[in-house]
Amino acid sequence: MYPIYLLEDNKLQRNKYAEFIHNGILINDANMTLEVVAGTVDDFFKQYDSKKQALYFLDMEILDDKIAGLKIAEKVRQNSPLSQIVFITTHDELSLTTLERKIAPMDYILKDNGLENIKQSITDDIEKTQQELREYNHLSKNVLDYKIGSRYFSILMDDVIMLYTNKDVPGRIFIVTKYQLAEFNGSLNTFEKDYPNLFRCNRGFLVNVDNAINYDSKTRILSFIDGSTCEVSFRKNKELIKLMSKND
């Protein structure tokens, strides 16, 4: 059973949300259970199991702490990067961009929009989580990790398109994913070793063949779902053709 956590300091609202979650599980016939219902941060951590992945519904402001929800979410992200986090909050407590940077939550539910709306959103989020769980059972749950300064970043391997270097900026790796461009310091050799599913198609490129759509073995140009391309070195040509045909 996939666990669900709920944190909300207002008793009346907490009971309502718990009811909505039970409802949502029933409607979606989901293999989940509302394991923890907490009213304070202490209460939450007493029952919190850091090893398990879970779906979290968190209120942002708990008692007098304006960012209690955010703090908990940060901890949860650290322990289990793939957990689903949903914030239930009022509009002006919401720092969307900051949250997106720090937590990348699955959803935000606005209290301002009324109970009916909250109910619908909770049901939707449960459905979404269930779907994700089903999909990931087939796929590798692999994530690619990198670090900038004191910050750790994770990217789902399924989203990764390529990593490459630029001789104008030595020591820096650029990463292209379905939704983002980023950069960090490192060497492609390390990443090639740590992530064997990535393919080194020439000295400066490490690519995710799962996100390639076409390979022209004559021009040795490999193209990807986002429209970007990369040249494959002569040496790697055969290896790639073999890899591509295996994937198909």
């Binding site: 997106e100 900038i148 939704y179 983002q180 461009l181 980023a182």
Partner: peptide, 8 residues
Amino acid sequence: YLETKIVH
């Protein structure tokens, strides 16, 4: 470092 992202 620069990061560019499209989300929600």
